[in-house]
Design a protein around this nucleic acid. Structure first.
Lengths: 225, 225
DNA sequence: CCAAAAGTGTTCCGTCTACACCCATGG
DNA sequence: CCATGGGTGTAGACGGAACACTTTTGG
């Protein structure tokens, strides 16, 4: 408590983003091959350094915007990774952020521009440095929170069917959910609104479209989803 | 993904510890008056800078050891605070750690040496910078985890009575727990062992002493406490 | 007409909650 | 002998889990 700045050393601080999407019944994340040393050519999360004039959260938002072109992405800090040798080049302390986006919002051309791609969570390769740990922490966090916080909506379009919602939850939890029990539970949640619209894309019969009502959802009302 | 270290700026990285203790039925934390600028004289958490040759976790352990003289303290990373102006002097990014200790293990003379004191959580003053936010995040984390992880033991001596254990849980949750229901639940938890010993300190009749069996507790077995 | 997905209720079981009295003992 | 904290059981409410069939319609 009597130390002074000058006696201490500084470190680079970076953010790394675990960007989740949902497609064809599976959770995927965006990863790319590193185009810089150290670790050139290894699979890696997308990240960036924290600039002097921005907060760490802002850096994460900026990096997400650079990569996706989307603002106001759902994003949560996961954990900070600070092993001395986690980056072989320099001392870099990295703050991992978990982000959820709707794959359909994502401009496919950006995939090529940034040379990243969607990879199925179950087929995740070995990633650079401690990035696999970051992914695991992020998933653990999602599983922990999914029953107390409305997360799934961020992975879906604004209008979605209950089957889609169920598939998202199943993908996050990694287990099947009973359809009737799931729908029963949804009926008790007041911020999931049924609309008059019918989706005819995914089934012949057609399925009712639902919407997440943000204004009806308050932080203090704990979701049961 | 094509950036290089040299283009970016470094920052000081610090750790701040929210050190919880339990005494006289209340949760307390260790805080002191800052003895350095900026913020000299303001109430503050105990913290320190991360050195070049230690991980962030090691820095937190070191700081905790400096202050308490105890090794292997229960400690969890809470959140990283990275607002640009959170430290008025320099750019300092701080990683908050929550720690739980048994107040009886704590050498009182260290209180004076480091000029810190135990303060009741309910009577917490305004703290330096974003330290109140750190405390709030730490409590939220404890409440979230107490039902899935055996935390309370860290705040108690090795041998404890069920009444003590109940009081700890009540303090963390901030609400009263029914004695009979609590004891019923404890009976179902196999890693809480009843010993043959009787505590005669706190009651005339005497109360059975219990022990947390670490080896019986496995990460995968979710506690119900 | 049939394949494919949507939609719908009931029963059972285990868990949580509420609740009040006797016990042992030191002073 | 009494004040103090220790210790015990039961009944009702509630929520989660298991489980199968009918509906609609595009091709």
């Amino acid at each position: 408590m009597t130390t002074f700045y000058s006696e201490h050393s500084k470190a680079y601080v970076s953010v790394d983003c675990i960007i989740f999407g949902f497609d064809e019944g599976h959770l995927r994340i965006l990863i790319g091959k590193r185009q810089m040393d150290p670790g050139r050519g290894e699979w890696s999360l997308y990240g960036g350094f924290v600039n002097h004039n921005e907060s760490v959260d802002e850096a994460a938002s900026r990096v997400l915007y650079e990569l996706t072109g989307i603002k106001n992405i759902y994003m949560k800090q996961v954990h900070t990774f600070g092993a001395v040798d986690r980056d072989p080049g320099e001392r870099v302390i990295s703050v991992a952020y978990c982000a959820l986006i709707n794959v359909k919002d994502y401009d496919q051309s950006l995939l090529e521009e940034h040379e990243v791609q969607w990879v199925d969570l179950e087929k995740l390769p070995k990633l650079y440095s401690d990035h696999n740990k970051m992914v695991n922490k992020a998933i653990t966090m999602l599983r922990r929170r999914i029953n107390t916080e409305p997360l799934s909506f961020n992975l879906l379009p604004e209008l979605f069917t209950l089957t889609q919602l169920q598939h998202v939850n199943e993908a996050i939890l990694g287990e099947e959910i009973d359809k009737r029990n799931f729908r029963k539970k949804i009926k008790t949640i007041d911020f999931i609104e049924k609309t008059d619209l019918i989706d005819k894309e995914t089934s012949k019969r057609g399925a009712a479209l639902y919407r997440f009502n943000k204004t009806m959802y308050r932080e203090e009302s704990v979701s049961k989803l």
